[in-house]
C-alpha cells in the first residue's frame, strides 16, 4: 500500500512542478484536474477498512468535483473571457520551477524538524502536503491572471486535503465535506467574479484593478 501512496505523492509533486512550469492557462487547469483525480484515488487508498461504500462514494465525489466540475467551470470561464490564455507570471517559469524545488526541499527540512504525526502513513506525505500549500501560495502571489489565483487556491486546498485524508483518518467524512463545500463555494464565487471582471474591463488581470481605487 505504501508504494502506491508514494506514487500518488509523486504524481502530486510532479503536477505541482508542472503547474509552475506551464505557460498556458488551459494546461494549468488540466494539471490541477489531474491532481484532483489523484487525490480521489488517494482517499480510496488510505482507507484501512478497504473499499467501503462510503469511501468509494467519497472518492467519487472528490474526483467528480476536483477532477471534472471545477476544471470544467474554469475552462468555461476561460472560454468566455477572450483574453490571452497565457499565464503572465511576475516570476519566470524557469525560476518558478526552481522555486518549487526549493519549496520541496524546505518542506522536507521543515517536516524533519516537526514531531512525528500520529497517523502518518509514509514519510513523504507530510512534506508533500506542506509543499502543496507553499506552491498554492506561490501561484497566488506570483501570477497576474485571476484564474491563476483560483488555481493557486485550489492547490492550497488540495494540500490541506492531503493532510486531512492521511492524518485525520478518524473523522474524514466531516472534514472532507466541509473542505469540499468551502472550495466549491470559493470556486463558484471567484468564477463569477472573473466573469464579471472580464465583462466590465475586457481583461482579467488582477494587477490592473488598482486603477479603480481613489
Amino acid at each position: 500500500m505504501n508504494t502506491s501512496i508514494d506514487i500518488i505523492m509523486l504524481v502530486l509533486i510532479v503536477t505541482n512542478l508542472l503547474l509552475l512550469g506551464f505557460s498556458q492557462l488551459k494546461s494549468c487547469i488540466r494539471t490541477v484536474a489531474c491532481q484532483g483525480i489523484a487525490l480521489g484515488v488517494l482517499s480510496l487508498l488510505v482507507n484501512e477498512d478497504g473499499f467501503t461504500v462510503w469511501s468509494v462514494v467519497m472518492s467519487g465525489v472528490v474526483i467528480g468535483l476536483k477532477g471534472v466540475i471545477f476544471p470544467r467551470l474554469l475552462l468555461g470561464a476561460l472560454r468566455e473571457t477572450n483574453a490571452r490564455h497565457e499565464v503572465e507570471p511576475y516570476i519566470g517559469h524557469m525560476a518558478s520551477t526552481l522555486a518549487g524545488f526549493a519549496a520541496l526541499a524546505a518542506s522536507a527540512w521543515l517536516c524533519s524538524r516537526l514531531p512525528a504525526f500520529p497517523g502518518r502513513v509514509t514519510p513523504l506525505v507530510a512534506p508533500v502536503a506542506f509543499f502543496m500549500v507553499f506552491v498554492g501560495l506561490f501561484v497566488i502571489v506570483s501570477r497576474k491572471k485571476a484564474i491563476s489565483q483560483i488555481l493557486g487556491y485550489l492547490v492550497m486546498e488540495n494540500g490541506m486535503y492531503v493532510f486531512g485524508v492521511v492524518i485525520l483518518r478518524e473523522m474524514p467524512l466531516l472534514v472532507d465535506l466541509a473542505v469540499l463545500l468551502d472550495a466549491f463555494a470559493a470556486v463558484l464565487v471567484m468564477g463569477v467574479a472573473v466573469y464579471h471582471i472580464n465583462r466590465a474591463f475586457d481583461h482579467m488581470d488582477v494587477d490592473q484593478l488598482d486603477t479603480l481605487k481613489g
Binding site: 509523486l10 509533486i13 510532479v14 512542478l17 508542472l18 512550469g21 505557460s23 517559469h93 524557469m94 520551477t97 526552481l98 518549487g100 524545488f101 520541496l104 526541499a105 522536507a108 514519510p123 513523504l124
Partner: peptide, 23 residues
C-alpha cells in the same frame, strides 16, 4: 523558447529522484 523549460524539468526530475533517495 520552451525547450529550456523542458530541460529544466528533466533536471528537476533527476533532483527529485535524489530527494526521494535521501529520505
Amino acid at each position: 523558447v520552451r525547450v529550456p523549460r523542458l530541460l529544466m524539468g528533466a533536471v528537476v526530475l533527476s533532483a527529485l529522484a535524489f530527494v526521494l533517495l535521501l529520505r
